[in-house]
Design a protein around this nucleic acid. Sequence first.
DNA 1: TTAATCAACTTGTATAAACAACTAGACAAT
DNA 2: ATTGTCTAGTTGTTTATACAAGTTGATTAA
Lengths: 260, 260
Amino acid sequence: MADHSQPVPKYYKIYKGLLEQIENGKFKPHDRFYSDTELVEKYEVSRGTIREAVKLLIQEGYLYREQGKGTFVTSPTIKQESDKLMGFTELMRKYKKEPSAKVIDKQVVAPPENIINLMDINETDKLVYLVRVRYGDGQPMIIERSYFVYDLFKPIYDMDLQSNSIYELVYEHTDIRLGEATQYISAVKAKQPEINLLNVEQGDPLLLMTRLIHTKDGGFFQYSKDVYRSDRINFTTTTEPFEHFHDDHGLPLELSDNSW
Amino acid sequence: MADHSQPVPKYYKIYKGLLEQIENGKFKPHDRFYSDTELVEKYEVSRGTIREAVKLLIQEGYLYREQGKGTFVTSPTIKQESDKLMGFTELMRKYKKEPSAKVIDKQVVAPPENIINLMDINETDKLVYLVRVRYGDGQPMIIERSYFVYDLFKPIYDMDLQSNSIYELVYEHTDIRLGEATQYISAVKAKQPEINLLNVEQGDPLLLMTRLIHTKDGGFFQYSKDVYRSDRINFTTTTEPFEHFHDDHGLPLELSDNSW
DNA sequence: TTAATCAACTTGTATAAACAACTAGACAAT
DNA sequence: ATTGTCTAGTTGTTTATACAAGTTGATTAA
């Protein structure tokens, strides 16, 4: 892999510095934050750079601005991970549990019928079929049953998939960059092999998450069916139903029939 | 209410103009988009203004940039509704089923212990307890068990809650504007009263969605536990896992351990 | 042919300056 | 007491300029 290291821009350093202050609890919920001018003087940069840094904090839900009034700190209860489903390691870290994994099955296979359609590949293309159980502090949490596009998975096929995140390996050892993931969540009854692998009772309710993961250039990377112990892991999402970027520039305001 | 109309900024007009071109199918998936310079000349504004407009299109998933290369149009199949869970009416519309609802219970109650903590209200405050079953083409889909803050719900208390969306009613008949919703998804076994109301078998797996809905000013509006027939409704989300604003600035790269 | 270099493009970051829009408080006039 | 006005401070938008960093293709040198 090439160098890839870029100089860290100023606005990003400033963002990190301000973020640390916020996360250390320096501000109470609706406290006044620094004004642009104050930050310009403190960091000795131009206002544009300051606004770039503050914009990041706003996008991540730490701050909000009110014209004429100032910049303020959000209520800390509502924020963070505002749109993405939490990842496994992230989840484990949050609850201070040690993540690990165990490979149950790994082989190169021909694509099953349903996946040919889903992933828009040829019958002659090869896939990697990988089954892993993921643990938090030794307790089984998730069974991952995945199909990867062989050509993309090849470089890491023989690496240590027990202790490493697949995505970490992909990022470090290939040029592949992952893109969007489409996810479906439903509920299923536990049966074999989940009963043994997850150590649950027959018929216990489990969460089934079906995922289709793309590469950044729009191709396919992975199709996966993951079964979660719903007594140990829930999904969390936060959404902002009526608050798109520019609702108040005189446009129709699409929002009325939202009913979740 | 005062005038409140702001002059529409240039970058917003430009954004609208470009968006229209994209949505009209002027570009194929990975087509080259206009360069900053081209747009500067076309619209006769500064580059900063152009970048502001293009940034909006990027944030909404229509475009992506690659340093040194150019700006490109995203694949149209993956985008839109990228982050929010689909609402019931939206869902029904999508599958061309007729949405309806039936009120099972409606009363003014004192706040239960657990909700006092969750919603940060006083013991003396009143809540509205509302239970509804929601149908698609006459088939039961969801049981909604909700607590609303009485003061906010009051204006629509006696209205027709069978055929209308609560949120629609709130939007039309009050000044309340809703804000963020935090949602937890887990799986449960069907028991009474779900068996009767949703017409399922004992022990069938159901999706349980717990929601806490805020008003735009940060107060609380609703706490709700919704049970979904998982054979009829799944949740769908789309996320962009590795594409935070600034992933490649040499930092620890928070993304690595993403493992969904 | 192959490799290295260069030139012309692209996007990314940063500066300095100015004005518009809005808010809150002080003050004066009614 | 209420109203209006002014002022200082805030965020919002826009301009013009400059250079850094990365890509691409053409040209040149080996």
